[in-house]
Design a binder for these strands. Sequence first.
DNA 1: CTGAAAGCGCTTACAG
DNA 2: CTGAAAGCGCTTACAG
Lengths: 320, 320
Amino acid sequence: MSLALRDSPLVAGTTRERIKEHAREIGYIYNRRAASLRTSRSGIVGVVVHDIMNPFYAEILRSIEHELDRSRQTFLLSNHYDQLDKQRTFIDTLLQLGADGVIMSPAIDTPASDILAAEGNGLPAVLIARDVEGAHVPVFRGDDAYGTALATNHLISLGHKRIAMIGGTDDTSTGRDRYHGYVNAMEAAGLEARASWRIPGPRTKQGGFEAASHFLALKDKPTAACCWNDLVAIGLMNGISRAGLTPGVDISVTGYDDLEEAAIATPALTTVWNGQREVGRRAASALLDKLNGQTLRPNEELIRPELHVRQSTARPVVRL
Amino acid sequence: MSLALRDSPLVAGTTRERIKEHAREIGYIYNRRAASLRTSRSGIVGVVVHDIMNPFYAEILRSIEHELDRSRQTFLLSNHYDQLDKQRTFIDTLLQLGADGVIMSPAIDTPASDILAAEGNGLPAVLIARDVEGAHVPVFRGDDAYGTALATNHLISLGHKRIAMIGGTDDTSTGRDRYHGYVNAMEAAGLEARASWRIPGPRTKQGGFEAASHFLALKDKPTAACCWNDLVAIGLMNGISRAGLTPGVDISVTGYDDLEEAAIATPALTTVWNGQREVGRRAASALLDKLNGQTLRPNEELIRPELHVRQSTARPVVRL
DNA sequence: CTGAAAGCGCTTACAG
DNA sequence: CTGAAAGCGCTTACAG
């Protein structure tokens, strides 16, 4: 009967149907805990990110969901809010449930040993968005330095010379890469990337909104802002509007990620496409491959970002 | 040993510590599947909503997470996207995993029998945001008719006479309630709630954005829009701006939910607080009570919404 | 009070 | 090919 319910080819079609029909009638419920105990496969995949409420992760999750659904894996979602202990508790839970694998955007300061420990206990891991040095597992993320360079060069080509960088943190590889991309582009163009023009921290709409007054009070008033992500950019634009200026006219603003929202912001946001769908899809399918016994070498191909120009960037206003 | 690890009072403190220490050393991993098989308690709670990417649900989930964390329940999240079969598959998964309970914002057209079946199979349910007639389980949601009446009356008191209702659907109890609240408020004030002034459908920012042109082309140009939710309102305001009008001046707009985002929108959105935190908290704690053997009567106390007036509403402009 | 045994519901290797 | 038995790792009722 067990065979019939699992559509085994060892059982003839009609017999299978008859058994399934009977199972339905008596309200049989397959006990996955028992099966999993026996087979040590649970059909559960864990996914842990900073915050699922953040549309950037939400878009990745959407495509992970899509990919895992096709292979009938159940996925267990969790936020770590960049708290290591939260992340550890979650990994513990996965181990206790016998999860088959985990896709994670590691919390800040995740030691490689955490990931190695998980793998050692039979929980293969795949990383998204952020890397952990020494973990030697596949990572799927965009080329951040290249991406901010795209945005910065776009602003420079419009004629901006004083460009601020708003948001992000040096605590993650992503944060460092994006800042470097900006600094390198500035310097390559012979422009100064003043330390005071960097406002680190903001990563949300609220953060960008609150950074607006700081930005507008900056010495030698930058005419453009290269933002950490779309959320910060949208928040900043809102703050700029509140101050009576017009983003996309008085101040040029670029985002990063190209969230669905970027296109309908006012003004529509010039931003860098960061391949969320692609990240999710590749990460999920890499994990599935791993579960099916394939050995994956730690990859280093980054997803190549693309600049999407919209209305939030323009030539600087010449004040007479 | 089993007793020691679970902090049973039957085991002395020092012994307990010694055993725990040893467990740590040998890298012991508690097998929850085995325990659950034996005790038929899994420590898993399912949560299924329309779409976790929607900030309205995300805010509810945040508070559910907070509540469940305290009682060390693992929660399994899923979107049903208003597809009944997705919701059923998820409930099936919960049954197979032996989940202890489920918190759901039921998909459109969920029959009471689905919920009764879950309960009959030992999966107690608690509803949020939407009701299912005949399910006889606790529901936690706001008083929607009262809420839209608050918004509509606010617009009326500012002097608006032609008020449109944008978004939502009659397919959910929430949709019907909100529309009724609007219609009743209009009629109570002796104003006409023209059917053509209702633009049903939109529920997202994108939807509100796209509805803007339809709204602006409405016959006898309404001067205000009472929106289905904050997302629609923000999208609509973006669309209105794109058309060269100023929301909060030329057109008054109200939202619903009071998302974190409402306060930083431009202009800041006048909206109706819908108690997301409260809904999540109450639903989670009701389910926990149910798991602990308390019998809950299906409740009918609705959470009372509150009007939060900001800058997106003003007196209608008098065209000379 | 302690320790060995039974049993949760599956899957699979094995005997018939 | 079929059917009974063993065993996954726990918990708990029970014998000693």
